[in-house]
Design a protein around this nucleic acid. Structure first.
Length: 245
DNA sequence: AAGTGGATCAACCGCTCTAGT
DNA sequence: AACTAGAGCGGTTGATCCACT
């Protein structure tokens, strides 16, 4: 027996969204806010699965999306965050306002992977592909690159990265339960300075305080604004989020 | 101009997790 | 404690675009 389908597939459209469908979705969310995705399609007059509506809104219709090419700064942030978090696209996206997990995931797979390989770095574990180069680099490796390099690729889940369950960032599961949307989802509460400073140091391997990694957990990473300074970037490439109507 | 293969990206699928009962 | 519904995430697929021959 399989799972019951998430929606009635017999009467739902699939494939590319039409302009009209987009407009219906936008209009509905403007009027009622996000939340209750399962019931939204019917309420909005859409023959779509709720999941599909959610994806369409989050990835393409949200007014605060940045679109356009990734900047060099964003590239570097993504690479650094991936080295720390693994394929936790939603967490990475939470640190890049205006970017979605899907967009980052695609960008990683199409651009950054190749970029890293051309640098002689394994995109999965961020280790040098050439052991000799790795040894040379080890002597000068910056703090941000340490921990995961000494073990096998580290899905964050297994790695027991320090988690602060009280400082959720992108966990929309916690704030969109049948309620109006918030515009804070990708703007986690600013971490304390020592947390930001401890970014590298706290990524220890050990028994987690949490039974397991959860969506509501967050990592002790700086917020976007702080990320810029943390990663040594300057103002300029940033488009701040716009409030949803 | 037509054909081909690689690159890109929007969308779907299946699974996990959480909250509610 | 067990079960269920709903939301969210990550992996994958497929359609389209684009450069090259």
């Amino acid at each position: 027996m399989g799972r019951s389908p998430c929606c009635e597939k017999a009467h739902t459209n699939k494939g590319a969204w039409t302009k009209e469908e987009d407009q219906r979705l936008i209009n509905y969310i403007r009027a009622h806010g996000e939340g209750c995705w399962r019931s939204l399609p019917k309420a909005a007059g859409l023959l779509r699965c709720g999941k599909s509506c959610r994806l369409r809104w989050i990835n393409y219709l949200r007014p605060d999306l940045k679109r356009g090419n990734f900047t060099e700064e964003e590239d570097e942030i993504i690479i650094k965050l991936h080295s720390l978090l693994g394929n936790k696209w939603s967490l990475i996206a939470g640190r890049l306002p205006g970017r979605t997990d899907n967009e980052i995931k695609n960008y990683w797979n199409t651009h950054i992977k190749r970029k890293l390989i051309s640098r002689g770095i394994d995109p999965q574990n961020h280790r040098h592909l050439n052991p000799a180069a790795a040894a040379a680099a080890a002597a000068t490796v910056p703090a941000a690159n340490i921990d995961f390099k000494n073990s096998t690729p580290p899905p964050a889940k297994e790695n027991n990265i320090s988690i602060n369950p009280t400082t959720d960032n992108s966990s929309s599961a916690d704030n969109t339960k049948c309620s109006s949307t918030t515009t804070e989802e990708s703007q986690p509460p600013p971490p304390k300075e020592e947390e930001a400073a401890a970014l590298d140091l706290d990524l220890s391997i050990g028994i987690p305080s949490q039974p397991k990694y959860t969506k509501s957990a967050s990592f002790n990473l700086p917020s976007w604004g702080e990320s810029k300074s943390f990663f040594g970037f300057s103002e300029g490439a940033v488009v701040h989020q716009l409030p949803i109507v």
